[in-house]
Simulated scan of single mutants.
Amino acid sequence: MERFFLLVLSGCLGVSRVTADSLSPPFNVTIKEVKANSAVVSWDIPEGDPVIGFAITQQKKDVRMLRLIQEVNTTTRSCALWDLEEETDYIVHVQSVSMSGTSPLSEPLRFRTPKEAETQASKNEVTMEEVGQATQLRAGELIIIVVVLIMWAGVIALFCRQYDIIKDNEPNNNKDKAKNSSECSTPEHPTGGLLRSKFPKNNNNNNRLPSVNIIEV
């Protein structure tokens, strides 16, 4: 990208440029980011034009001196204007540049630079807005943290309550187990073993009943 700057005093120095009849002038020329000493001009071009660069003419209102800014080998659609004077009216034109020459001038764009104090005031307003937004975000984060802590406290309290209920029921369960164990025991076998079966003795060897061996557990 090549950029050329030319400061021209009309009537003292002439600048000859070849006009390309096939090129259309840029449109939608707008100014933005206007400050006391700088601004940015942007534009659009018709599709299909063989454009290789642009030429921006900057002139003070009611003053014959102007500044010519020419950029080639670029596809940019904006240009920064610098070294402006505060509280001053300016007129800007934009032209497309091709291999055969330049397009006609765009519609004139007029704007006025503000005071330096106004620029500082606008910066302070933006800063205060950012501070307010940051404060709102922090307040929202604190609310979320408090809600989460309350939920955790509720969960812990519920757990402690259930634990106390289970702990209180443990003695009753032990008593029930001991009672069930005593019901299953016998006087002969307190531990709940099997009773020995007893058969009457018969002196007759022929009619002797089979003996049964009982295994105690």
Rank of each mutant, 00 (worst) to 15 (best):
P50E: 10
E85W: 01
M65I: 07
A80N: 06
M65T: 08
T76Q: 14
N124C: 00
K60W: 12
E129D: 06
I56T: 13
T135Y: 00
Q133I: 02
V126E: 15
M65P: 00
E129S: 04
E129G: 00
T119Q: 13
Q70R: 09
R64Y: 02
T88W: 09
G101C: 08
M65Y: 07
I145G: 01
V63M: 07
T57A: 02
T88M: 13
V97K: 11
V51R: 11
Y163P: 00
M151L: 15
L66K: 15
V146P: 00
I144D: 10
S96H: 08
E118Q: 14
W152Q: 09
K60E: 15
L142A: 10
I91S: 06
G101N: 03
L158H: 03
T119E: 15
I144T: 10
Q136P: 00
V126T: 11
K123V: 02
N124T: 01
T135K: 00
Q95F: 09
C79Y: 02
A55C: 12
V63Q: 08
Q58K: 04
V63N: 07
C160E: 10
K61R: 06
V94F: 09
T74E: 04
P104N: 10
A153H: 07
N73R: 11
I91Q: 12
A134D: 02
A153K: 08
V146K: 14
E116N: 06
M99Q: 11
L137V: 01
R64H: 02
N124E: 13
L66H: 13
D62W: 07
I144Y: 04
D83S: 07
Q70S: 14
E125Y: 03
R138A: 10
T88F: 08
T102Y: 12
E125C: 04
L142K: 07
D62V: 00
V146A: 15
S122N: 08
Q162F: 11
E130F: 05
L84Y: 03
V72T: 15
C160M: 12
L109E: 04
